[in-house]
């Protein structure tokens, strides 16, 4: 399938580059619909990889790249079930999203997240699964999960630690503060900072450059330098599920979903 148009995302293969556009209002929250379509992408990659050298993921929405997991859906679904069932559902959901993230992380393609605006929580984790992050100067990165009594659950902690080191993880995780693209570049998270609205263009230029290299060499280089921290990823799922069973989480989710605060995204 060289192209796909779903409710949450679309993709198209052209000139060896797969462009994945996120377009679920209001800010690409990752719920069950997005997950299903990401799984379709992961499956399609098995075939498309032979015909491509790079993948770019970006958002079509002005609000930002992705604000993370769909907390409203998570809250509503978990309230409909008894706790054991809800926990089972959360674990299943996490396993599925981890499979997608791991597929993207380990893909033989060179993957680029072209981000702008809000790149929070699961959105940040999606970007971290990519090889390169190219950021519009208005992008902001954040792990707000502690506000809810949780940790990031889509693989963010092990991947950030792999890429940047424990000190940066502690700063972002334990304070829940957001950082801008310039700071992201200073700490080695962001490979390029570009002007407003220019991230996709810069990602395309980068993908074009990548296409000049021998594929086998590029794949060998990526496999050598980018190990997937499978053990820590599994531990992350376990810790997330342990925490999810705590009453503080339901309170945190309820507060978020019902919040009339003007700054619900700020931890």
């Amino acid at each position: 399938m060289k192209q796909f148009h779903g409710q949450a995302l679309s993709w198209e293969l052209s000139d060896g580059v797969i462009e994945v556009a996120l377009h679920r209002e209001p800010c690409n929250e990752i719920g069950s619909q997005t997950l299903e379509e990401l799984e379709k992408l992961a499956t399609a990659l098995e075939i498309l990889t032979d015909q491509s050298h790079a993948l770019i993921i970006y958002s079509d929405l002005k609000s930002g790249f992705c604000s993370g997991a769909d907390l409203r859906e998570l809250y509503c679904r978990s309230r409909e079930m008894e706790q054991a069932k809800a926990l089972e559902g959360v674990r299943d959901y996490l396993k599925r999203i981890h499979r997608v993230m791991n597929t993207l992380d380990a893909s033989p393609l060179t993957t680029i997240a072209a981000v702008h605006g809000v790149t929070f929580g699961g959105g940040f984790e999606l970007a971290l699964a990519c090889d390169l992050i190219i950021a519009d100067k208005m992008a902001r990165f954040c792990f707000p999960e502690l506000r809810l009594g949780l940790i990031p659950g889509f693989g963010g902690i092990p991947r950030l630690k792999r890429d940047l080191g424990n000190g940066v993880v502690r700063d972002l995780l334990l304070t829940g503060r957001s950082i801008n693209a310039t700071k992201g570049q200073a700490i080695g998270l962001v490979s390029q900072v570009v002007a407003e609205g220019e991230a996709l263009k810069a990602a395309r230029a980068t993908a074009s450059q990548i296409g000049k290299f021998d594929r086998r060499t590029a794949i060998a280089a990526k496999q050598f330098i980018k190990p997937i921290p499978y053990e820590e990823l599994q531990r992350e799922i376990d810790i997330f599920c342990d925490l999810f069973a705590q009453p503080a989480v339901e309170r945190g989710l309820k507060r978020f979903v019902e919040s009339a605060e003007v700054l619900p995204y700020l931890p």
Partner: peptide, 9 residues
């Protein structure tokens, strides 16, 4: 809130 973040940036 999103625009407030924009202003902060």
């Amino acid at each position: 809130s999103l625009q407030a973040l924009d202003l902060l940036t």
